[in-house]
């Protein structure tokens, strides 16, 4: 009896595990259709400089900020979105104009910016990114991101935008 009961438990457990593993695969197409817009992060807009110029790179480079900009819902890439990037780096403070620069996304919705090494400021090594509707020319809502590096010695950081129609 004990054996049968435990076998039942094993079979039921296996079935539940299979269902749990299969469920995301079954539901993923439906979930992709409802890709949620990225909310603005707390403190994301701190030391933002509206209309910072588009630059080839910020300062001397050596650190890579990259990411993507997609449309909420189906997740279609957004080309030509203007993203401003700034951080506290080895070359300048977060509020200094030379710490800020903007770039445009390519046809795949990707952007990247070379910038000086980010160093911890206010207790965390972090960067700032903005999609500002006023300067981006698009029809999407403004979003400010403040990604944190998992280690201060990292030489790259990623941030991804999912934008909602205004």
């Amino acid at each position: 009896m004990t054996f049968i009961a435990s076998r039942r438990t094993v079979i039921a457990g296996a079935a539940a595990a299979t269902a749990a593993l299969a469920a995301p695969a079954i539901f993923s197409p439906a979930r992709a259709q409802e890709l949620q817009p990225t909310p603005t992060m707390r403190g994301g807009a701190n030391n933002y400089r509206p209309g910072a110029p588009i630059v080839e790179r910020i300062g001397g480079g050596g650190f890579r900020m990259s990411g993507t900009v997609r449309r909420a819902g189906y997740g279609a890439p957004i080309e030509g979105a203007r993203i401003q990037i700034w951080a506290h780096t080895t070359e300048a403070y977060e509020s200094d104009p030379e710490s800020h620069g903007a770039t445009l996304t390519d046809a795949t919705g990707a952007f990247q910016m070379d910038m000086p090494q980010i160093v911890p400021a206010f207790g965390q090594p972090h960067g700032h990114l903005a999609y500002d509707a006023e300067y981006a020319g698009g029809s999407f809502r403004t979003v400010f991101l403040r990604p944190v590096m998992s280690s201060a010695s990292n030489t790259s950081l990623e941030a991804h935008f999912v934008l909602a129609e205004a």
């Binding site: 992060m41 707390r42 403190g43 994301g44 807009a45 206010f122």
Partner: peptide
């Protein structure tokens, strides 16, 4: 050093839990 970050901390709306 950074007025917006310090004010966020004082108003308890900073992204960093230690604030």
């Amino acid at each position: 050093a950074s007025p917006p970050d310090a004010i966020d901390a004082l108003l308890l709306r900073s992204p960093t839990p230690f604030s």
